[in-house]
């Protein structure tokens, strides 16, 4: 069983929801990333989503774009990100790691080359924002050979036909984008998310995570009531951005711990 499947099964047995924090590899500086990953696990992350820096992150808001720019200033590329995962795996063989990024860095590395290296370094899944199911057959084949899950996004506007298409191809879990817009945007309609998840579950049998726009413990716990996993990105990056370098670890730790607490409360109430 894959690490992701095992993680969700264990969570399910304990009646808990998954917390998936997102950080950008190399932000605020490369040597912090593995430390941050371990700390995230210590304070309750079930899965880690690691952003691969890209120069033109079209689907992200300004907060995550700035984190990419900080990482790119330190020349952090896809192969460095893979090395960071390998480093993390030296002492953690349990927590799944998902790479989230854009198509061009993997185009430049080559699909086959990427899949081989990613497996070797201990990557569990990949979410490539600008590879919709229609454009990535060859890519999926390469990932499958190395047992790396392909995670897909669904949005409030995704048509029924495409939900079915994604249901066929998606592995690990499905990532539901809870609002129209880019990562870190403000508006969030809980009722709409609830209705949409009910509808999506009629097609999708694997877990559903919700992300984009979860910015505090209130939204985090509300989403935990509905979804199998809560993804928090921009809020964490914001904390990294505004912290002094020697306080990054502590501040992120406190933030994620509070998110964990909020989510646990929900799980226990049910």
């Amino acid at each position: 069983m894959s690490r992701i499947a095992a993680t969700f099964r264990a969570l399910n047995q304990n009646n808990r929801k998954a917390l998936i924090p997102f950080i950008t590899a190399g932000d605020p500086e490369p040597k912090m990333t593995v430390l941050l990953m371990h700390e995230l696990v210590n304070v309750g992350a079930d899965i880690i989503e690691l952003g691969v820096p890209f120069s033109d992150p079209m689907a992200d808001g300004p907060i995550i774009q700035r984190s990419y720019e900080r990482a790119l200033k330190c020349h952090v590329g896809l192969k460095d990100v893979l090395e960071m995962v390998a480093e993390f795996r030296k002492t953690n063989t349990v927590t799944p790691v998902i790479l989230m990024g854009y198509a061009n860095p993997v185009e430049a590395m080559g699909y086959q080359n990427f899949a081989v290296k990613a497996e070797m370094c201990g990557v569990d899944a990949v979410l490539t924002v600008d590879y919709p199911p229609e454009e990535c057959e060859e890519w999926l084949k390469c990932l499958k050979q190395k047992k790396i899950d392909a995670i897909f996004l669904l949005s409030p506007t995704t048509s029924e036909l495409r939900v079915k298409e994604v249901a066929k191809k998606a592995q690990g879990f499905v990532y539901y984008v809870s609002l129209k817009g880019v990562t870190g945007a403000g508006h969030f309609d809980l009722k709409e998310v609830a209705d949409k998840l009910t509808y999506l579950r009629s097609y999708i049998s694997i877990p559903i995570g919700v992300g984009f726009g979860i910015h505090d413990i209130v939204t985090a716990s509300a989403v935990a009531e509905l979804a199998d996993a809560v993804v928090v990105g921009s809020r964490i990056i914001e904390e990294i951005e505004k912290s002094d370098k020697n306080k990054v670890l502590m501040n992120v730790s406190n933030l994620v711990r509070s998110l964990r607490k909020a989510i646990n409360k929900v799980s226990l109430e049910h």
């Binding site: 079209m58 689907a59 198509a103 924002v129 600008d130 590879y131 919709p132 229609e134 454009e135 897909f152 996004l153 669904l154 949005s155 506007t157 995704t158 048509s159 495409r162 984008v177 129209k180 817009g181 880019v182």
Partner: peptide
């Protein structure tokens, strides 16, 4: 060519 966009844009393009 093709349609290499995030899911959030797909329906608008269709």
């Amino acid at each position: 060519g093709g349609v290499f966009v995030a899911e959030t844009l797909f329906t608008a393009l269709e």
